[in-house]
Design a protein around this nucleic acid. Sequence first.
DNA 1: GGCTTATTCAACCAATCGGTTGACGAAACG
DNA 2: CGTTTCGTCAACCGATTGGTTGAATAAGCC
Lengths: 108, 108
Amino acid sequence: MSHPLDTVFAALADPTRRQILTMLLEDDMAVTDVAQPFDISLAAISKHLLVLSASGLITQEKRGRVKWCKLDPNAMRAASVWMQGFGQFEPIHLDAFERFLDQELNQS
Amino acid sequence: MSHPLDTVFAALADPTRRQILTMLLEDDMAVTDVAQPFDISLAAISKHLLVLSASGLITQEKRGRVKWCKLDPNAMRAASVWMQGFGQFEPIHLDAFERFLDQELNQS
DNA sequence: GGCTTATTCAACCAATCGGTTGACGAAACG
DNA sequence: CGTTTCGTCAACCGATTGGTTGAATAAGCC
């Protein structure tokens, strides 16, 4: 019975889990493949993935004997929105938007 | 020897600490005043504030016998940038930017 | 000087966390 | 069929966490 943001931020607080998330950014992965770059046990990785899916940061789908892990952007978006709600700093991706803006302005 | 994001996200994972941060959004506060809305001990609040300042989310300055707590946006910005670096979702404040964009495009 | 207020320190506690190991279940291979 | 591969489960471990209390420090007030 804890706030969703509790579990999302807690999940993000661990460097192994953050690295897993960045790996999943490239492509969906099976549990064993996720574990490959780390030198901790497969069981430990399995637990990390459980934490990530419990927080909603990833989803897991079992096809045959392999379980596929994929990013689910919703939870991280919620956390990001909470932060932005703070309004203490300029919106991110300003650069990208300015480039886009320049492009739009100069093409006509 | 942990990554800065470890401590920032860990600090954000606690609802009491997040509430303290939102309180500090209104104004700087003394430790005792921070503690007032919570029904946990002052010592517990003091520890929470230590966690927040260790992570860089707030700074504390002692003037006389009272210690003032104020938000420091840098740490949260770093965390927000990390999230946005994921690029899995539209940048927040898109609305504001689109309004700005429209304005720029239509004024010439 | 003596009381009061502000805050931290120190010791303790139960619960959670990140990791291990070994056994287990279930799907694929030959 | 037997074996290998994929992944989880269960029990355990030491460290950390969020809380408590009571004492200690330090600054302001009358």
